[in-house]
Design a protein around this nucleic acid. Structure first.
Length: 271
DNA sequence: AAAAGCCCCTGGATGC
DNA sequence: TGCATCCAGGGGCTTT
């Protein structure tokens, strides 16, 4: 579910409210993707310094150690002073002096993992291979072009892999390629400089606009303050198979790449 | 080193 | 109504 915009919207919806809080207790429900990696009781008494984001991971900094939190495909967070008793899909609760942080995740592809530091093995394993942040000043055309040049796979799949640039998931990969006029199946290495420049701009544009719209809510995404996103209403190709292209009217096509669906306009994205 | 498949899991939509 | 099948915002791990 959540791509960079949804994860960032989530972060913004509770980071300032939880900063400075002291952890009172932690409850772990059904197993998520990985075990927490420490005894829940060990976190009590620590304080929350702040919340950062790296790719689609949220990093909850404590005065000692940090939590790496991933929303997977179906996860969402809640943060409020009072929450109802945990439901069937509430798999992590962290009660603090300023409210309870709760992860709801029906499919349980998400995770909450404790690490002693960002240099700890578990943190390096999860964060070490991540590419550049697309909305930061580090996302430079030269570097992006160089990264794509050494990848012969289809550009859509290179974007999804997240080791060149992070945060672009299945919705925004199709959307960014549409904006750039690039066919999702072309080899990343074969993209000309001007086309890479259009893709670079397209990624920043699509992620930035989705962020402003509160992300996309397809099923059950909401921020930690309960706001749903609205960007799904603005998609040009995603989930629009057979419908007319909003630019040229040609029927949108769908295909499978690496067991994920891809959408594109055969006329606007000729190659 | 890079690419391609395989899973993890639940629920909603669709079809018979 | 019941049941089978397919599909879904991800990504680490194993195998080619």
């Amino acid at each position: 579910m959540p791509e960079l915009p949804e994860v960032e919207v989530t972060r913004l919806s509770f980071a300032s409210r939880i900063a400075g809080a002291r952890v009172l207790s932690v409850r772990v429900g059904k197993a998520l993707r990985w075990p927490l990696g420490c005894a829940p009781g060990q976190l009590a008494g620590r304080s929350v310094r702040g919340v950062r984001r790296r790719g689609k991971y949220l990093l909850i900094d404590l005065d000692r150690g940090l939590l790496l939190l991933h929303l997977g495909m179906s996860g969402s967070l809640g943060f409020a002073a009072h929450l109802p008793a945990p439901g069937a899909h509430d798999h992590f609760d962290m009660v603090t002096t300023q409210g309870t942080l709760r992860l709801n995740d029906p499919r349980r592809f998400g995770a909450v993992v404790y690490a002693d530091s960002e240099d700890a093995d578990v943190a390096r394993k999860l964060l070490g291979r991540l590419g550049v942040e697309p909305l930061s000043d580090d996302f430079q055309l030269d570097q992006f072009h160089a990264g794509l040049k050494r990848r012969k796979a289809a550009i859509k799949q290179v974007l999804l892999a997240g080791d060149v640039v992070v945060g672009v998931g299945n919705i925004y990969a199709s959307e960014a390629l549409f904006l750039a006029g690039i066919r999702p199946t072309v080899s990343a290495a074969r993209l000309s400089r001007p086309r890479v420049a259009r893709l670079h701009a397209g990624i920043r544009d699509i992620l930035g606009r989705a962020l402003v719209s509160g992300g996309s809510t397809l099923r059950n995404f909401s921020s930690a303050s309960g706001e749903i996103g609205h960007f799904q209403l603005e998609t040009r190709v995603y989930a629009r198979e057979g419908q007319p292209c909003r630019v040229c009217g040609t029927a949108i096509k769908a295909l499978r790449q690496g067991q994920r669906s891809t959408f594109y306009c055969p006329a606007c994205q000729k190659a």
